[in-house]
């Protein structure tokens, strides 16, 4: 584990290198464990926990805690209780106006759009974490052959429901948000509902499959 001050009110806990090809299930379990431990224990002074693929950003109140104190909290032993993972099937309309970057992804992957769709639908995905925007699932398990670099300048608005690829990652935008990922399709499924409890449909460890609608 590596600890770095990301700001004067946050500590970045890394379980592995920060290169994009290091998406592993071992790190996913470490991230999930630390996240759930902190979220469930709610230690005084911890404001927010932002999990990612191989790291957890812990945001704290600098008038209550310091980086050293947060590190001690993270190192304190104990595992979060186990949970039963679920499987969610997400229907996707690929390409067209609501999937404007499908052709670019296909060109980059040197294959047809149909092949990209087949590969994207054919994989089993697992939710590594929710991040970026409310309820946005970061999924592991996308075939490497359809990985496509992010846009060099992010779009100001990506519509809710957009299914996108960013590097070797794929995900669904639950609400309108700016974003630099390549949009390959759209789903009518609601991934985030502030009125629901919990507000996010997916959670860390959920299994996901995409289905061409």
């Amino acid at each position: 584990m590596r600890y770095r001050a990301a700001s004067d009110r946050s500590l970045l806990v890394s379980f592995g290198p920060e290169t994009p090809d290091e998406i592993s299930s071992k790190n996913r379990l470490l991230v999930e464990n630390l996240t759930r431990k902190l979220v469930e224990a709610k230690p005084c002074g911890i404001l927010n926990v932002h999990p990612a693929y191989a790291s957890v950003l812990v945001v704290f109140d600098p008038l209550t805690l310091d980086h050293q104190g947060v590190q001690h909290l993270c190192e304190s032993t104990g595992d979060a209780p186990a949970t039963e993972p679920r499987t969610v099937v997400i229907p996707v309309h690929y390409g067209g106006e609501r999937g404007p970057d499908l052709a670019d992804v296909a060109r980059h992957a040197r294959m047809t759009s149909e092949e990209v769709v087949r590969l994207h639908c054919g994989a089993d995905y697992v939710v590594h974490f929710l991040g970026f925007s409310p309820g946005f699932p970061y999924l592991g398990g996308m075939p490497e052959s359809i990985a496509t670099p992010r846009l060099s300048s992010p779009r100001v608005r990506v519509p809710a429901g957009s299914v996108a690829i960013g590097g070797g990652q794929t995900g669904v935008y639950p609400s309108d948000a700016p974003g630099g990922w390549r949009i390959i399709g759209w789903t009518p499924m609601k991934l985030f509902d502030p009125e629901a409890d919990p507000p996010a449909l997916l959670t860390m460890g959920s299994h996901v499959r995409f289905e061409a609608a």
Partner: peptide, 19 residues
Amino acid sequence: RCGLLTEGAALGAIQVPPD
């Protein structure tokens, strides 16, 4: 020009896209 594995971002972070 090396990529970054998505990680937690803090309020007030100054991020720099490739542009």
